[in-house]
Design a binder for these strands. Structure first.
Lengths: 121, 121, 121, 121
DNA sequence: GTGGTCTAGACCACC
DNA sequence: GTGGTCTAGACCACG
């Protein structure tokens, strides 16, 4: 269920991180449920173990998961509504919007784009 | 008038490019008016000449300016409403918003952020 | 009576070892009294036999218990005040404190934390 | 000035991280001052680039530093009294003390150990 | 030159 | 089997 866009500018480990957060928020992975093992994911996605490891390391640093060496990586309870993730997302979005404004994008164009994206699915 | 945010993740040459576009859109630089020379700008901003050169290259590639070798760089007429720039800005913004959505940011939060930014100044 | 914190970074076999020592020091297990069998404990705690076995190995290596093959594991007399255990605990604590100091934790904060912990129960 | 204990149980990247924090807190590295480059440090400490990189990555995640790709890594202002670091240090210390208590270490022994360590230097 | 990403492999402790 | 650490190399964007 995790899809990697190898052409994207977004680092692969970020894509993994984002999609796992998405899956957790969607309820696919429940609190205290074990995530797929790093090695299994790396194999499935045809990626190096360290790339996946980096994604999991960031997830743990953000308080989304916890790991038990020798056992696996698990979803932290309350991870689905992690404020830290939302805040960082908003912080990252701000300069993008500011830049779009400076380049002449009109406010309505942005709002329309957002509506379009949020209506998907 | 050009301010560089050295803390920002945005490449310096992108910041220069953006702010020159902004200055053109504001009418500070008129069509067919000469822009400051690369060397003068580099000196003034305490930057490497290559960094400024890169910004000017991109401006020309986007049809914002034209250069006459040995003479200088000039504002292209019609640059103030360059469609290419707007399109690329929108294209860059899209994955950012998609990512924010995936992380749990609500639609209203984004719209509100945009309003906040567009009300400035 | 033995509780495993599966979230903890402390290895499970260490948790078992610690809690058995605690039970011995509290007088729950008396000198020369037989401890629960490895298999029984593993079953009760829902753990792999090897994990419990490792804890018992360490207990014996530290002179807390002795085993009679085919008979069981017994509390060694004098185990309640085992100097080796205390020394190793102090040795383990030292780098932790040194690290806390380096990170800016004040002496009073540590002393207060200790008081807080020792006042429990 | 950074010394690595290759025999320690503490990961090398943690040792680097701690000592850099210590140096910042001591005023050796001032806010917005550039830290030694990852490559230079790796060379000096005879370590792999990625090991040092991991330390810097954690420093940035903890808000101690910020990096400008192509330029270097810099001390974030206010880094010297980072609350996050202190809190995590205290959180890490707690189970250690709890374990020492369970093993029979007396409260005075711990307080004495702390005094001894804080009197150094 | 700088930091950022990714791959490929090793060894370890733990379960 | 699991995750954690470390090494050794590559390539990229940026200045």
């Amino acid at each position: 269920m995790i899809l990697i866009d190898y052409h994207s500018r977004v680092p692969i480990y970020e894509q993994i991180k984002e999609q796992i957060i998405e899956l957790i928020r969607a309820g696919v992975y429940q609190p205290d449920e074990q995530l797929p093992s790093i090695r299994a994911l790396a194999l499935q996605l045809q990626l190096n173990v360290n790339t996946v490891k980096r994604a999991f390391q960031d997830l743990e640093a953000d308080g989304i998961t916890y790991s038990m060496p020798g056992r696996g990586v698990y979803v932290k309870s309350g991870a689905a509504n992690n404020q830290k993730v939302i805040e960082s997302a908003l912080r990252n979005t701000e300069p993008m919007i500011r830049s779009a404004k400076a380049k002449g994008v009109r406010q309505e164009q942005l709002v329309q784009l957002i509506q379009h994206i949020y209506e998907e699915r």
